[in-house]
């Protein structure tokens, strides 16, 4: 890429500045932690527990987000109805709500003294200080990332292959599952990668709603904060951060590659 005009040069400089700023903290973490220290950090029981809990809860949250979010996004993406803009705004609202406010909101709705707290207690379901509570908090903060992308992906689909599927004998669900979802897969994968990455790093809502109990609700970001709060815990926090970055990057890359998201400009055939 060779800049041909002053504006092109300016754009290139802006890109370089943005990249440097975004990458610097991540590089600094790895610069400060030797590979030996990284492996040592992984060897501690608490780190492994926190990481495993993060992987389990985010995987559960993503499974629920995909199962509920995909058909919901299909409806919003393909249909034009009164109040659609309002529905989209409501879906996007958690994106602009501070995580701590999200945690308080979840407590007010689903906590022991919340609106549905009594009903949940009646079914024997407990969320606060429980792993299930972590999953609920993760769904709340990460689902909008998936939904936004999925709505856009379904909305951009050519409708004629979907109609063709119906004339070939496919019911609405078969047309959705076999034509719409595969066609929208790059967008869905991109949304999933964003949502999963956000869920892996979620802190505030989980802390306020589910607490930070090692083994039950203390996910990797909460464990990092717990280490950081100890007088000599900075290095351990740094090492756990590095591990979380590696895991998150690997997950994002896998999801994008599985979705055929054009990392290498490839098309996937079935």
């Amino acid at each position: 890429m060779r800049p041909r005009s002053p504006f092109a040069l300016f754009s290139l400089l802006a890109l370089a500045l943005a990249l440097a700023f975004l990458v610097l903290p991540i590089v600094a973490i790895f610069a400060d932690v030797s590979p030996a220290r990284l492996i040592e950090a992984l060897g501690t029981e608490s780190a492994r527990e926190a990481l495993w809990l993060s992987l389990r809860t985010t995987a559960m949250a993503m499974a629920i987000v995909i199962a509920v979010g995909t058909p919901a996004a299909y409806l919003v993406g393909r249909r034009r109805f009164r109040g659609r803009a309002l529905v989209i705004t409501a879906i996007e609202l958690p994106l602009v709500v501070p995580p701590a406010v999200a945690g308080i909101g979840l407590l007010a709705a689903l906590g022991p003294r919340g609106i549905f707290g009594g009903a949940l207690e009646g079914t024997g379901t407990e969320l606060v200080f429980e792993t299930a509570g972590v999953v609920v908090a993760l769904i709340f903060v990460s689902a909008p990332f998936y939904l936004r992308q999925a709505i856009a992906a379904f909305g951009a689909l050519d409708g004629r292959p979907l109609e063709a599927a119906r004339t070939l004998g496919a019911g609405p669900f078969r047309a959705f599952a076999t034509v719409a979802v595969p066609s929208a897969r790059p967008g869905l994968a991109s949304g999933l990668a964003l949502a999963w990455g956000h869920a892996l790093g979620e802190f505030g809502a989980t802390l306020l709603f589910a607490g930070s109990l090692p083994g039950a609700t203390q996910t990797a970001p909460l464990a990092i904060f717990a280490e950081f709060s100890r007088p000599d815990g900075f290095v351990a926090a740094l090492a756990l951060s590095a591990v979380l970055i590696v895991v998150a990057a690997a997950l994002l890359l896998s999801v994008k590659l599985l979705g055929g998201d054009g990392l290498g400009g490839t098309r996937r055939a079935r």
């Binding site: 050519d158 004629r160 292959p161 109609e163 063709a164 599927a165 119906r166 004339t167 070939l168 004998g169 496919a170 019911g171 609405p172 076999t178 034509v179 595969p182 066609s183 897969r185 996937r268 055939a269 079935r270």
Partner: peptide, 30 residues
């Protein structure tokens, strides 16, 4: 009756093939 219950074949102007499926899968679908 919905389209899938009419068994009425429609060839679209731009053919509306399923872009993610190979040619034989497009046919197998029906």
């Amino acid at each position: 009756l919905p389209p899938e219950r009419r068994r009425c074949g429609l060839l679209f102007q731009d053919y509306a093939l399923f872009p993610c499926m190979k040619a034989w899968r497009n046919v197998a679908y029906a």
